[in-house]
Amino acid sequence: MNRYRYETNNNTFYHSQAWRTLRRQALERDKHLCQICLQHNELTFADTVHHIKPIRENDSEKLSLENLVTVCRKCHNELHREKPMTLKNKKRRLNNYTNLVKRFTNNKEVW
């Protein structure tokens, strides 16, 4: 097992007021819709907020709205599969989500 993934304790962070506020903002920004399913023209309710760049790799962006994407539980489980991915697949997946966030932050449409 990767000790950086499984021996981290972020409970304090995930129970903080700052995280809860930012999480709510991300959910409202994405209208509680899974952004991955939306790419496949599926409307799926989402209640999970995912860090695009993991906290263990970039602690300075853990409270950055641009580093968050709203996903459904199914997609979140896919993102955090127990089976390790190749480095090539991880980089491709990270690049896809980074591009997705750029698309949403540049969208000035108001409802």
Rank of each mutant, 00 (worst) to 15 (best):
R20K: 15
A46R: 04
L33Y: 09
A26Q: 00
V69N: 00
R24T: 15
V71N: 00
L63Y: 01
H40T: 10
S60W: 06
C34S: 08
I52Y: 01
I36G: 00
K74R: 11
T12L: 13
E42G: 03
K88H: 09
L33H: 08
E28K: 14
P54F: 04
T12Q: 14
V71L: 15
R23E: 12
W19A: 03
K83Y: 10
I55H: 06
K83A: 08
E66W: 07
S60D: 08
H76S: 01
D47E: 13
K91E: 09
R81S: 13
I55M: 06
I55F: 06
L22Q: 03
L63K: 05
R92Q: 09
D59K: 06
H50P: 05
F45A: 12
K91C: 03
K74E: 03
L87R: 08
R23A: 07
D30Y: 05
L38M: 09
L33W: 06
T48F: 12
K83D: 07
H80Q: 04
L27D: 03
R29L: 11
T12A: 15
N89S: 06
V49G: 00
S60K: 10
R56T: 03
R29A: 09
P84M: 14
H51W: 00
T70Q: 05
Q17D: 15
M85V: 09
C37D: 02
N58P: 01
R92P: 04
A26C: 06
N41V: 07
Q39Y: 00
C72E: 00
I36H: 00
C34G: 03
Y14D: 03
L65V: 07
H50Q: 07
E66H: 13
K90Q: 14
S64H: 10
S64N: 13
E82K: 13
N41H: 14
H15E: 12
R73I: 15
Q17L: 14
L68K: 02
A18M: 11
E61N: 08
H76Y: 06
N67F: 04
Q17M: 08
A18F: 08
L65G: 03
V69R: 01
N67W: 01
K90N: 12
T8D: 07
K31E: 14
V71S: 02
E61Q: 12
T86F: 05
K88W: 07
D47W: 09
E57V: 09
K91Q: 14
N58S: 07
S64C: 10
T70V: 13
T48G: 02
K83L: 11
L68N: 03
D47C: 11
L33C: 09
K62V: 02
S60H: 07
T70F: 05
N9L: 10
A46Y: 02
E42V: 14
T21H: 13
S64P: 05
L79I: 15
H40Q: 13
H80S: 02
R81G: 11
K62L: 01
C72S: 08
T8V: 14
T44F: 13
A26F: 01
K31M: 10
L63A: 05
L43A: 12
T70Y: 04
A26G: 04
Q35L: 08
C75Y: 01
